[in-house]
Amino acid sequence: MNLTRRHMLLLLPAAGAAWKYVLAGTPEAAPNYKLSEHWWGMLIDLTKCIGCGSCVRACQTENDVPEGYFRTWVERYHVTDYDIENPQVDSPDGGKKGFPPAKDPSGKNFFVPKLCNHCADSPCTQVCPVGATFISPDGVVLVDKTYCLGCRYCVQACPYGCRFINPTTNTAEKCTLCYHRIRKGLTTACCENCPTGARQLADLKNPSDPIHEFLKTHSVQVLKPYMATHAKVFYNGLDGSVR
C-alpha cells in the first residue's frame, strides 16, 4: 500500500496515544491502603507542649528540610494582660534547639507548634496554575515537585505561612504529613518524636481513632477559623492571642 501524507496524518494521533502507554509503564500498587478510607489531620494539645523542639528536629531529619527552612516549627507566645491583640512571639531557629528562658516570666507564656493545617478547602491548592499542588483523596495537601514551576503563588496564598521555596530545587515545599510514613501505617516523624504526646496524628475517617473522643470532650479550635479553610490541625487549649 502506498502511504500518502494524508494517511500519516490520520495515523499520528493513534500512534501518540499508544506511545504514551508505553512510556507510562505500570503504576505501583499500594496493598492494604485504600485512599478513600482515610482523612488525615492532627491534634495538638498545647497544654502538653514543652517547647523542646523534638518535632522540628525530627521533621528536618525525616524530610531532609534545608537548613533555615521549616515544615514545622514552634512559636513561644507571651501575653502580659488583657492585650491579646498584641502578643510577643519568638521562635529562635524555629524552636529547633529549644527556647532560652522567658524574658518576662509573668503573664501568660506558652508554646504553639505549627505546621501545614492540611485544609479541606485549602487556598494554596486553589491558586496553583499548573496542578502541581493538590489535596490527595486521603486529605493531605501535597506538592508534585516535578510539576511545580516555583511561581510562589501558593506561598503567598497560605494564610498560615506554611510553605517555602526550596533553595536547591526552586520548587514549593511544605509538610507532607509524612505521607511516606502514614501510607505505611506509621505515624509522622513529629508525632513519633514528641516526648509528651502533645502532637497526635489523627485519621478522621477511622471511627476507632481516639481523636473522635477527644474532639467530643474538649474545647478545640483551629487556627484562623475566619479564613474558612476547614483546617484539620486541631488545637486544644488554644489562646485567643495566637495568630
Binding site: 503504576p27 505501583e28 499500594a30 485512599l35 525530627a58 531529619t61 525525616e62 524530610n63 490527595s136 501535597l142 508534585d144 516535578t146 507532607t176 505521607y179 511516606h180 510514613r181 501510607r183 505505611k184 506509621l186 516523624a189 513519633e192 518524636n193
Partner: peptide
C-alpha cells in the same frame, strides 16, 4: 502520590 509515598524512612 506514589512517588511521594516512596520516600525512604529515617525514623
Amino acid at each position: 502520590l506514589a512517588e511521594i509515598a516512596a520516600r525512604p524512612l529515617h525514623y
